[in-house]
């Protein structure tokens, strides 16, 4: 059942024990991502040097999908450039909208979130952390 795919073990695990969760001391970039409709409210903090993300953390409260997506994304970010993040974010958006595309190896574990694509009302949750990171990268802490 699609519901079991949505709340599959990997996603539940990231929700229960989100990685890179908390505040980041010495952040150079940050942004707040809020979805008033759902009540999601996260803060993404990044330490960027030489054009690459060195460290990423998120904090706040959000639903299981947003939390899992943020947790996976924070892990994925290490060593990525702003351009790479934007490209992967766009790719992720496409994958959410089209189940027939093959997984993108660049996204790794994040591909499992494609199950969210079957729940149109929840796609915004999977994407919120990505949008917030892009916003953070174009800002200053």
């Amino acid at each position: 059942m699609a519901l079991d795919r949505l709340y599959q073990q990997v996603i539940l695990d990231h929700n229960r024990c989100p990685r890179h969760f908390g505040r980041l001391a010495g952040a150079t970039h940050s942004a707040r991502g809020r979805d008033g409709l759902c009540g999601d409210d996260i803060l993404v903090e990044l330490r960027v040097s030489e054009g690459r993300v060195k460290e990423a953390m998120f904090s706040g409260t959000a639903c299981a999908i947003t939390t899992a997506s943020a947790s996976m994304l924070m892990e994925w970010l290490a060593g990525r450039s702003a351009v790479a993040v934007e490209e992967a974010g766009e790719r992720f958006r496409q994958l959410l909208g089209n189940a027939s595309l093959p997984d993108d190896p660049v996204l790794g574990e994040i591909n499992c979130l494609r199950a969210v694509g079957q729940f149109p009302a929840r796609v915004r949750n999977a994407r919120l952390p990505w949008q917030t990171v892009v916003k953070a990268l174009s800002s200053k802490a």
Binding site: M1, L3, C38, C63, A64, I65, F119, A121, R122
Partner: peptide, 12 residues
């Protein structure tokens, strides 16, 4: 349980 997740599960 975040209300959003509750809504999705209960919808099923």
């Amino acid at each position: 349980v975040h209300p959003n997740d509750l809504g999705t599960i209960i919808d099923h």
